[in-house]
């Protein structure tokens, strides 16, 4: 199936490994990601209100004849696109999807498993934007837990899964991010699994020896495309 693809700024730079791995997984699943031509930054969390939805509205407009299902892996881009899609009447009906929303039991069962996750402990960490506010949240709020347990991994971190790591203040007030991330790290065990490039950066920065990985790393490991986690 063909999808329109909105990588966003981080996936073109500091999170380029996430971009590469998302593309790889979609490829392995037999899907095509067609990058939206000449997309603009969605404004992330820096721009205020109106301008923010205007930026994403224009990005959706640029799709024109492309597929009307839009994949956005970065949670901030996903939220902004979803807000814009809700606020404006486009000629075509678009759907904004996060890669996590593609996964269900059936899809997981169809994957060729090379390594399982037996004996490994994980804290799936969603952060804020994938789960809140409700109108833009992902459909299944336990999908990462379901993926991990499907491949026999163990789960910890129920207390922290939806708490805030403060990543949005990382470059404005580092003390905030440091304190919040350390709290989450103290209250959880095992490998931290994230999908958000900002959460990845915040957690990694203050995690000392704890491993912080993207869910895409875990999936590619399970599928045998990566040798280590």
């Amino acid at each position: 199936m063909d999808y329109s693809y909105y990588p966003g700024c981080s996936l073109k730079g500091s999170a380029s490994s996430l971009d590469r791995d998302v593309r790889k997984i979609f490829n392995l699943l037999g899907h095509n990601l067609l990058e939206i031509p000449d997309w603009n930054c969605c404004g992330a969390l820096e721009y205020g209100g109106k301008e923010l939805t205007n930026l994403s509205r224009e990005n959706i407009r640029k799709i024109e004849d492309g597929p009307c299902e839009i994949i956005a892996p970065c949670p901030a881009c996903y939220k902004n696109l979803k807000d814009a899609n809700k606020d404006f009447n486009f000629k075509t009906n678009f759907t904004v999807l996060h890669p996590l929303e593609l996964f269900d039991k059936e899809l997981l069962a169809s994957l060729k498993v090379k390594h399982d996750l037996k004996g490994m402990l994980f804290t799936p960490y969603y952060g804020c934007v994938l789960l809140r506010p409700e109108e833009t949240a992902i459909k299944n709020k336990y999908i990462m837990e379901e993926i991990i347990t499907f491949f026999s991994g163990e789960i910890d971190g129920e207390k922290v899964r939806d708490k805030c790591c403060g990543a949005s203040r990382l470059f404005a007030s580092k003390m905030v991010t440091e304190k919040l991330s350390k709290l989450l790290l103290e209250q959880s065990k095992g490998i931290i699994v994230v999908f958000c490039p900002m959460c990845h950066m915040a957690m990694k920065m203050f995690s000392k020896k704890r491993k912080v990985i993207y869910l895409t790393d875990l999936l590619l490991y399970v599928m045998g495309e990566k040798k280590f986690l």
Partner: peptide, 20 residues
């Protein structure tokens, strides 16, 4: 905004994207 946040907004204003 911090210097960093201003730099992000400047970058978007110049190039339409955040150029890290």
């Amino acid at each position: 905004g911090s210097v960093f946040e201003h730099a992000i907004i400047e970058s978007i204003n110049i190039w339409g994207r955040m150029y890290e």
